[in-house]
Design a protein around this nucleic acid. Sequence first.
DNA 1: TCTACTAGCGAACGCTGTTCGTGTCAACTA
DNA 2: TAGTTGACACGAACAGCGTTCGCTAGTAGA
Lengths: 241, 241
Amino acid sequence: MTTPPPPTWPGAFGAEPRRKRRALSRELIVETALKIVDTEGLDALNMRRVAQGLGTGAASLYAHVANKDELLALLLDRVYGDLSHPEPDPERWREQAKEYLTRQRDNLVAHGDLARAAMTQNIPTSPGALDAAETMLALLRAGGLPEQVCAYGVDVISLYVVATALEETSRKGPEGAPDQGQVDAYLGGIRSFFASLPPERYPLITGMAGPLTRNVGDERFEFGLDLLFDGLVAQAGRVYD
Amino acid sequence: MTTPPPPTWPGAFGAEPRRKRRALSRELIVETALKIVDTEGLDALNMRRVAQGLGTGAASLYAHVANKDELLALLLDRVYGDLSHPEPDPERWREQAKEYLTRQRDNLVAHGDLARAAMTQNIPTSPGALDAAETMLALLRAGGLPEQVCAYGVDVISLYVVATALEETSRKGPEGAPDQGQVDAYLGGIRSFFASLPPERYPLITGMAGPLTRNVGDERFEFGLDLLFDGLVAQAGRVYD
DNA sequence: TCTACTAGCGAACGCTGTTCGTGTCAACTA
DNA sequence: TAGTTGACACGAACAGCGTTCGCTAGTAGA
């Protein structure tokens, strides 16, 4: 039986600057790791590879980073931290939220399949992820939604964004931004697979192979966001003990 | 550059039964692996461990299973296959869908953190997952929703179910079903962490620590489902080229 | 009974995350 | 300026992983 450790964020919220001697530092490690994820994908990220990028050995990293999990958490926080946060305007909170979440997804997609790492850490405890959650809460509250709906809603929404980013990036090789031709080829493969299934068992999947694999710009992503916001507004009247 | 392989499902849809000699078979391997996941968690699942459970060596498994990824896919399909599928009734498609999805989630949760494996295979290609998708499509169509809304919607919904199951199971140790006390302890830890954050930077998170970590039965899960269905109905009028 | 084929399987390969013990340099003290 | 000290760097190794190789052995068909 493993009791989950209390969430902490080492060296944040009043951290002491570490004295450096030979240029190796936590920031440098994160930077190097991010470059590897961007160019070679998450699977290519291992401690030796990062160390090699810094001209040293893997063991040296452990002086600055507890383990690979912490490194991944730092990477995610670094990516989340790249976002600017809108000032909530009750008149147009929905557009603000859509714009913000779209940037959040683009930001994730821009860093290869890093979203896969975000998928496992379901509850945000890093500063960057907390900032994102705070921003979304502010936008939802600006929309006049009740507390509990905002609380539940922010969970569903951030889940959707990360999962969509993951879906987007897993449709291609691990290198850089998703190439439209590659995505089309992948989805085309899925489409013909769906269409080739036995129609007597899967009448709807075979019949709807086209709509199921439709990929027109951000339409799919925006559909999900509109769906979520409409749903949230519809749930606004719900009461909780 | 890695072109994704065309989706196949080895030995399904008209498969030939494999002749067995010493009792080792694909089904036995899947069964043993599932037992390990159930009792020791997904992280404890490795080829040597499965082989040991069958009184043999890891190499023997590769005669029946291409690799670990295929084994995971088989596990998931096995779990999805445990579900019975409702006959869509246009009068109560929503209740049917909620009931079906709840069973689907319970089914996943019952098998430890296997949901984590489901998270990465985003597009269903196994018979069991295809059955689930077909069922959901039928229910949504019974609700009178347009084709494209159903197509996009089934994606979002199955994503939500898997992610929720994952969230549920990752809140505890890897053994068996989630224990209420353990979940409460975990969420209590998160709650005090949220409450202990600097209020000037995170006024909403600190102020809403309670609602954010609320966990009353299936309320959270059902909230998400209601939200999704309300959103789908609201999107019903949308037109696509 | 003999032969051919195939599933079973021990051993090994290359990879991973992580730790240990030692080396080494920078900064403080006298 | 010379000596000391302690934190950092790092090569080497460990334990574990997925997977492959090539031999063994048992069964089905002639």
